[in-house]
Amino acid sequence: MIETASLHCGYGDHEVLRGISLEVRSGEMTGILGPNGSGKTTLLLALAGVIPVRSGTIRLAGRNIRGQRPRWIARHVASVPQRSDVSFPFKCLSLVLMGRYPYVDGWGRYSARDLDAAVDAMEETRTSHLAHRLIREVSGGEAQTVTIARALAQETEILLLDEATSNLDVARKIEVFDLFAEKNRAGATLLCVMHDLNLAALYCKRLVFLKEGRVALDGPTVEIFNDRNLSEIYGTQIRVSAHPVTGAPQAHFVPRGNCAPTDRASSESVSGGGKC
């Protein structure tokens, strides 16, 4: 359960979030969408307690996070950052084990239980073969999957994903989101910041659109994911049609001016005899 009430956050003179009120119930999988600079990443950072709240409140699991210890928050919320720069030669397993930091004892030791949780997370993300490779020696996509494994090893109720799959290839992207959906069915609450509108519509039942630090639109995907809303928020022409298999709404961007350089017949069949 995540609740924010007229949340304001920012950096220096720049106020990024300007009054976000949002309620995400346990077990929801919600996509956070919006143009660049709309405050998506800042919202996730605020929810994870790593940037200070200027005004308003954030409540996690029924408690105001102001004054909560970072370890408490990290036992309830795990984050997957957009990218993770590791300057030092850590083993992938060591990085996944860092997800167990909120549970370590006073001496900073990982228990057998922590090792099990880390290995579980690596097996779920199919990265266990990388366990003893150095993070610098694996590919960017593999490193990102290791970061996802780290968040799963935290065993939290809430997962905050910030473009978690943006540098994975299509197959891995779907695989990872299938895993997220599975976690969601098992009770996890997921908040996914995404640029990929269609991936969001495919997996998230609810979408929240941010624009200029405010909630522009919030509702069930099937209701709000339509031509008019998307075109208005993104400021470009967007058409929506049903996914051929799942029936989820999918967005199609319409180039300005002329159609794509295909022959007229196929262009007409694709656009369904539309104006373009």
């Binding site: 970072p70 370890r71 997800g99 930091y101 370590v104």
Partner: peptide, 23 residues
């Protein structure tokens, strides 16, 4: 005493904070 925290801090403040370090 803070050797473990050093591991996490070497990932950067943001990630260390997300993982529960009082940065």
């Amino acid at each position: 005493a803070y050797a473990r925290e050093l591991d996490l801090l070497s990932l950067g403040d943001t990630q260390a904070g997300q993982l529960g370090v009082d940065v």
